[in-house]
C-alpha cells in the first residue's frame, strides 16, 4: 500500500513523542486502543487552569498511519482550548493525511485519544473540586 507524503513525513519525523507526568494535576492522559487490535495510542495534554492546551505528547503502538495520526493531533491541539480540541474529528485527520479506507480506524483512534485525555483532565479537576473554567464556546474554525 502506498502511503501519502504527509503520513510518511509524520512517521519519519514524528512530532512531540514523549511522556508527561501523569500525576501532574494539569496533565490529562488518554490511552485508547488495544494491543490485540494492533494499535494503542497514548496522548497526554498539559492544560492550563483556563483550559488552554499548552503541551501535547504521544506514544503510539501501531502502524505508520496510527503513528502519523497521533503525531498530527499533537500539532493541532497545541494552543487550542480543550473545547476546540475536542471538536477535531476523525474526518479532519483522515482528510489531512489522505488515509485510505482501511486506515480510517487510525484517525478514529486519534480522535478518541483527544477526548479521553480531556476527560481525564476534567476528572482530575473535578476531584480537586476546582470548577472547570468555562471556555469560549464560540466555534472557532476547524484546523
Amino acid at each position: 500500500m502506498a502511503y501519502s507524503d504527509k503520513v510518511i513525513d509524520h512517521y519519519e519525523n514524528p512530532r512531540n513523542v514523549g511522556t508527561l507526568d501523569k500525576e501532574d494535576p494539569n496533565v490529562g492522559t488518554g490511552l485508547v486502543g488495544a494491543p490485540a487490535c494492533g494499535d494503542v495510542m497514548r496522548l497526554q495534554l498539559r492544560i492550563s487552569d483556563d483550559g488552554i492546551i499548552q503541551d501535547a505528547k504521544f506514544k503510539t503502538f501501531g502502524c505508520g498511519s496510527a503513528i502519523a495520526s497521533s503525531s498530527l493531533v499533537t500539532e493541532w491541539v497545541k494552543g487550542k482550548s480543550v473545547d476546540d480540541a475536542t471538536r477535531i474529528t476523525n474526518k479532519d485527520i483522515a482528510q489531512e493525511l489522505a488515509l485510505p479506507p482501511v486506515k480510517i480506524h487510525c484517525s478514529v483512534l486519534a480522535e478518541d485519544a483527544i477526548k479521553a485525555a480531556v476527560e481525564d483532565f476534567k476528572r482530575k479537576r473535578a476531584a480537586r473540586a476546582v470548577p472547570v473554567v468555562a471556555t469560549a464556546v464560540a466555534a472557532s474554525p476547524l484546523p
Binding site: V17, A34, V40
Partner: peptide, 24 residues
C-alpha cells in the same frame, strides 16, 4: 519502541495483560 506506550509500560513493570483495554 521509544515511541511505543506498551514498551514504556512493560519497562515500568506494568503487566499489559492486566490492563483493561478499550477494544475498538
Amino acid at each position: 519502541r521509544e515511541m511505543s506506550p506498551l514498551y514504556e509500560m512493560a519497562r515500568d513493570g506494568v503487566d499489559l495483560k492486566s490492563v483493561q483495554w478499550a477494544a475498538h
